[in-house]
Every structure is written in C-alpha cells, then in structure tokens.
Amino acid sequence: MNEMNRSINKSINRSGEALIEEVQNTEVPYGCLAVWFLGQESVIIKGGGVTVYVDPFVSEFEARTYPAPIRPEHITGADLCLITHEHIDHMDPATLSVMVGSNPAMKMVAPAWCRKPLLEESGVQEDKLQNAETGVWISPLEGLRLQAIPAAHEQLEQDGQGFHRYVGYILELNGVALYHAGDTVIYDGLLENVRQHNVDLAMLPINGRDYFRTSRDIVGNMDYREAAEFAYAAGFETVIPLHYDLFAGNAENPGYFADYLYRHFPEQKFHIMARAERFVYVSPRAFLC
C-alpha cells in the first residue's frame, strides 16, 4: 500500500507541475478566458496576463473521492485569490497557507466573515486582503474589475456591518464577463441582479439540497434543474456546472444538467469540464476588429 501511495504521489506531482506550467504558458487572446477545473468549485481563470484562483481546495483531505490534480506547493504565478465563503472546501487553510508563502505578491478578496481566520490561520497579510463588499466594483489588479454578488447558502446572511457571509463574483477580464456563483440557491432578486451584467460565461453549483443532507448539516445549493433554468433566464452565453464531483454524500450527475438543457433549452451553450481540463472560452466579441 505504501508503494502504491508513493506511486500516486509521484504521478500527482508530475501532473501538477505540468498543469501549472500549462497555466503559465497559456497566452489568452482578447475576448477569451482560459479556465482550469480543479474540482468542486475550485478553478483557475486566466486572461489578459492575469491569473485568478477561486476557492482553491487542493490539499489532501480524507473525504475526497479523488485526489486534487495539483498540490498547494505547485501553485505559483497567482495574481489574485477569490474566496466565496469559509467552508473548508472553499477556504482551505492547508492550501492557502502554502499558496500565500509561494505567491507573496498575490492579492485576496474574501467575505469579511473570513478575515480573521485568513489572517491568523493562513498567514495572509492585512494589506493583501480586501473585503468582498457586495454591489461595489473594485479593481484589485490592472485590467480586472470585479463585484461581489450576495449568495444564499441556503439563506442570505449578513453581519452587523451588512457584509454578506456568502458571495459569488462577477469578473470583467480581458473583454469577458464571468460569473462564479459560489455556493447559492436562487433567491428573490438574484436573477435580476446577475442579468444586468450581461454575463458571457457563468459557473453554477448543481448539487442541490434535500432533507437528508440537511439533517447531516450539509448546506445545499441550487439543483441541476434550477441551474439550467437560471442560466437560460439570465441570458448567459455559456454555462459550466460546478460542485457535483468531490464528496460522495453531496454529489450529482452533471449529465442530468446537460440532458435538461438539451431537452428544454437546446440553444443554451454549456460545457462540462473534465478534471484538470483547460477550457478556453471564446466570446462573441473575440474576433471583432
């Protein structure tokens, strides 16, 4: 067994180094974004020379159904890290503490609820950390604008200062508008809020929720039907499903999402990502002079 584990670790190290090298070497034309899928809601987004990590969760974790395609020590060249909320599969100290040390110039945006543990447990420097204030555009890096969007996982929650506990993000980068929803159900006002941003590429959770998972303290999200309906109603040009693959007790078949779109909204573009895949999104504006 030890020999098998050593072999798996060597394989992950080789593939992880190759993935990060691919990220660093990928040049993304204007009107496009490159996206790498790391599992759950962890993604790397690159465009305009800017590399963004969202909810990086790539440490060893017993409940995983498969090992992360990279390890924390592989991550270099990160310009910005976005955190949607404090659950460990979204804000992982074992990943972030290593990531911060290897990427000293990296900036971070996270809900105010996450501020204390990020500073104390992950070693984030105060001047590198900005609160995710919903409804406000910020430009943490040149060429990038982003806005935090309230998320309801499963309820909207705010602290005494009005900061939301759960958020998603709208990113305007390299001529593309991307929406990463974080963990959320659909609540009154979310559709209207997101629709006004003319999102090109959206990433939505599809694992859903039910009585039995709630009784085990597993907080839920929109299910695949809701995500498909939401994508179409919001006018997303392309949608990618997330949050369905990492934990056996909180999983979903992304094929159901694809089938629902095919049957009800066949004109809606979507893409289901393979593990560690590089997907290059090309917007309708990519080839305009």
Rank of each mutant, 00 (worst) to 15 (best):
D183M: 10
D183P: 02
D183Q: 13
D183Y: 07
T184H: 09
V185Q: 13
V185S: 12
V185I: 13
I186F: 04
I186T: 08
Y187I: 09
Y187R: 09
D188N: 13
D188P: 15
G189S: 01
L190I: 06
L190H: 09
L191W: 00
L191F: 04
L191T: 00
E192H: 03
E192Y: 04
N193H: 05
N193Y: 05
V194S: 02
R195V: 02
R195D: 02
Q196H: 10
Q196S: 15
H197S: 03
H197L: 06
H197W: 05
H197A: 05
H197M: 05
N198T: 12
N198M: 12
N198A: 14
N198R: 14
V199M: 01
D200S: 03
L201A: 05
L201E: 00
A202L: 01
A202G: 03
P205G: 00
I206V: 03
I206F: 00
I206S: 02
N207G: 06
N207K: 14
N207T: 12
G208I: 04
G208E: 10
G208V: 04
R209G: 13
R209S: 13
R209Y: 14
R209E: 13
R209Q: 12
D210P: 10
D210S: 15
D210L: 14
D210N: 15
Y211W: 14
Y211H: 13
F212M: 10
R213I: 07
T214E: 15
T214Q: 12
T214H: 11
S215I: 12
S215R: 14
S215A: 14
R216Q: 15
D217S: 15
I218C: 09
V219N: 11
G220N: 03
M222A: 05
M222G: 04
M222V: 03
M222D: 03
M222T: 04
D223I: 09
Y224G: 01
R225T: 07
E226C: 10
E226Q: 15
A227G: 12
A228T: 06
A228Q: 06
E229D: 15
E229T: 08
F230N: 00
F230M: 01
A231Y: 01
Y232Q: 14
Y232K: 14
